Simulated scan of single mutants.
Amino acid sequence: MIRDLWLIGIGTGSPRHVTLEGAQALRDAAAILLPLKAGKDDLAHLRRRILDASGSTARIVPFDYPVRDESLPYQDRVAAWHDEIARRWQAAFDAPPDGPVALLVWGDPSLYDSTLRIAERLEPRPRVRVVPGITAIQALTAAHAIPLNTVNGPVTITTGRRLHDEGWPPGADTIVVMLDAECRFRDLDPAGLHIWWGAYLGSEDQILRSGPVAETADDILATRQAARERHGWIMDTYLLRRAP
Rank of each mutant, 00 (worst) to 15 (best):
Q24D: 03
H82T: 02
A102S: 15
L26N: 01
V61A: 09
S56L: 06
L26G: 04
A58M: 15
A44W: 08
F93Q: 01
V18F: 12
R88I: 04
G9F: 01
D42T: 00
A95P: 09
E21F: 05
P15S: 08
K37N: 06
W89Y: 10
Y74R: 13
A31M: 04
V101S: 04
G9C: 01
V105E: 02
P62L: 03
S56G: 11
A31S: 12
D98W: 02
Q75S: 06
P73L: 00
A53Y: 13
E70I: 06
L104V: 04
L7Q: 00
S56K: 05
A91C: 13
H17S: 12
D69I: 15
W81Y: 09
S56T: 13
T57D: 15
Q24N: 09
P96E: 10
A53N: 14
L33M: 10
V18R: 03
A25W: 00
L43A: 11
S56E: 11
T12Q: 09
L34V: 12
A29K: 03
G13Y: 00
D76K: 01
I60V: 15
K37G: 03
A53C: 14
G55Q: 12
L26C: 09
A29R: 01
D108S: 09
A91G: 09
P15Q: 09
A25E: 06
L72A: 02
R16W: 05
L26P: 02
L43Q: 07
G13C: 08
L43F: 10
A31D: 11
G11C: 08
R88L: 13
F63E: 14
A95K: 13
T19Q: 01
L20K: 08
G11D: 04
T12W: 05
P66G: 04
L36S: 06
L26E: 02
A79K: 00
H17G: 11
P15I: 01
P62Y: 09
A58F: 11
G9Q: 00
D76L: 08
L34A: 06
L103I: 14
G22W: 03
